[in-house]
């Protein structure tokens, strides 16, 4: 079984507060430390585990992004992916979810796959639109918010997280599957994995390789426009007290003052 996992690099959510550039109106990605999206770490781990249970299968990491995305892809390879494909092209800067899905779908079509894994949403843009849009471009069913996945013959069966519990949902293969964040523990790369990653196949593609016109992607193809960027009104910082043994009393007084008790 051939499993393609879509991954991307994002500003490190643990050390950076995402910022928008007031001129380009895009996310600032320079001068911040970029990491493989923590959600995607869990997704790629799910794919690797599935590959190892199924046997004679392959995991391919696919990303659309700038050259610097290679670092995140090396991490995916160190975690255990077999090879990597990066679609990189100056025309791609400023792509919206539609363009991103168009490019990824074209790369998947070129490669061919039985299963395509994504995270339900990314940590930086978090539109959650890319996987479903990609499935539509490919004409494939999508199984979303999976916290478990099983392959039963020619079917994929997932446990789909819903607000009240879960639903068991199935479709034929090939299919696009999105993994609910936190459902699979991320594999931690070993030293051996890190060394081995350097020797694994790494392909780079441009949009011309995929038969996509520059006008269909990037800023040129975007179907949404940012008009203004403003600052959120900060919540007025409240009162901070140190517990000297009377904290419970003080909180109860606060609750009574605002008629919460």
């Amino acid at each position: 079984m051939k499993i393609i996992v879509c991954i991307k690099q994002v500003p490190d959510p643990n050390t950076t507060v995402s910022k928008l550039d007031p001129n380009t109106k895009r996310l600032v990605r320079t001068g911040v430390s970029l990491v493989l999206d923590p959600g995607d770490e869990s997704t790629i781990s799910a794919a690797i585990k599935l590959r190892d249970t199924l046997g004679s299968s392959e995991v391919i990491a696919l990303s659309m992004g700038p050259e610097s995305a290679q670092e995140g892809m090396r991490r995916a390879l160190a975690m255990g992916a077999d090879r990597a494909i990066l679609v990189t092209d100056p025309a791609l800067a400023g792509s919206d979810a539609l363009a991103t899905a168009r490019v990824l779908a074209a790369a998947i079509k070129k490669e061919g796959a039985d299963l395509i894994f994504c995270s339900t949403e990314s940590t930086d843009g978090y539109t959650g639109m890319v996987p479903g849009a990609m499935a539509e471009f490919l004409g494939l069913p999508q199984l979303t918010f999976a916290r478990e996945i099983q392959i039963e013959g020619s079917k994929a069966v997932i446990k789909r997280v819903v607000p009240t519990g879960y639903k068991t949902v199935e479709s034929s293969l090939p299919a696009v599957v999105t993994i609910a964040s936190g459902s699979f523990e991320a594999i931690y790369p070993t030293m051996k994995g890190i060394m081995g990653a350097k020797k694994k196949p790494f392909t780079k593609l441009t949009i011309a390789d995929l038969g996509i016109e520059p006008a269909q992607v990037g800023e040129a193809g975007a179907r949404e426009r940012v008009l203004t960027i403003g600052k959120v009104e900060a919540r007025a910082a409240g009162q901070v007290i140190k517990d000297d043994g009377s904290a419970a009393q003080r909180i109860a007084e606060f609750l009574q003052r605002y008629q919460l008790l």
Partner: peptide, 22 residues
């Protein structure tokens, strides 16, 4: 919501529509 999000993503592609989230 979970289901409406999935529907929106595909409609965006099928009808070539702009989509703003959140």
């Amino acid at each position: 919501t979970y289901e409406l999000r999935d529907i929106a993503a595909r409609l965006m592609v099928r009808n070539n529509l702009g989509l703003i989230t959140d």
